[in-house]
Simulated scan of single mutants.
Amino acid sequence: MTNSLERKPNSALSQWRSQKGEQKRPPPPPKKKNLSPPTPPLPTLPIDIPVPDVSQQIEIPAESTAPLEQVETPEQVIPVRLTANLTATESDPSAVNETETIARPIQETETFTADPTSSPCLITPDVLPYRNRTVAVQVTTNEAGQATDASVRQSSGSPVYDELAVCLVRQWQFEPATDQGVPVVSDALVVAVRIE
Rank of each mutant, 00 (worst) to 15 (best):
D115M: 11
P116I: 14
P116H: 10
P116G: 15
T117Q: 13
T117M: 12
T117Y: 07
T117E: 15
S119V: 08
P120N: 10
P120E: 04
C121L: 13
C121W: 05
C121I: 09
C121Q: 06
C121P: 08
L122M: 13
L122F: 08
L122P: 13
T124K: 09
T124S: 13
T124W: 05
P125D: 13
P125C: 10
P125A: 11
D126Y: 08
D126T: 12
V127G: 03
L128D: 11
L128K: 05
P129Q: 05
Y130W: 15
Y130P: 07
R131L: 15
R131T: 14
T134P: 00
V135Y: 03
A136E: 01
A136L: 09
V137F: 00
V137E: 00
Q138N: 11
Q138C: 02
V139P: 12
T141A: 11
T141F: 05
N142R: 03
E143V: 12
E143H: 02
E143Y: 00
E143A: 14
E143Q: 12
A144Q: 12
A144T: 12
G145P: 03
G145E: 03
Q146K: 10
A147N: 13
D149S: 12
D149Y: 11
A150W: 04
A150I: 03
A150M: 07
S151F: 02
S151P: 03
S151L: 02
S151D: 06
S151V: 02
V152R: 00
V152M: 01
R153S: 04
R153A: 03
Q154H: 05
Q154E: 08
S155F: 08
S156G: 03
G157A: 08
G157S: 06
S158Q: 11
S158M: 12
S158L: 12
S158N: 13
P159E: 09
P159H: 03
P159L: 06
Y161Q: 09
Y161L: 09
D162C: 05
D162G: 02
E163N: 14
L164P: 01
L164V: 00
L164H: 01
A165I: 05
A165T: 10
V166R: 02
V166N: 01
C167T: 05
C167M: 06
L168H: 04
R170K: 15
R170N: 15
Q171V: 10
W172V: 15
Q173Y: 10
Q173V: 15
E175S: 10
A177E: 11
A177Q: 08
D179R: 10
Q180A: 15
Q180G: 14
G181E: 11
G181S: 10
V182A: 12
V182Q: 10
V182F: 01
P183N: 07
P183L: 07
P183E: 04
P183G: 05
P183D: 07
V184L: 05
V184S: 05
V184A: 06
V185Q: 09
V185N: 07
V185L: 06
S186N: 10
S186Q: 08
S186C: 08
D187V: 01
D187E: 13
A188P: 09
A188Y: 06
L189F: 02
L189W: 00
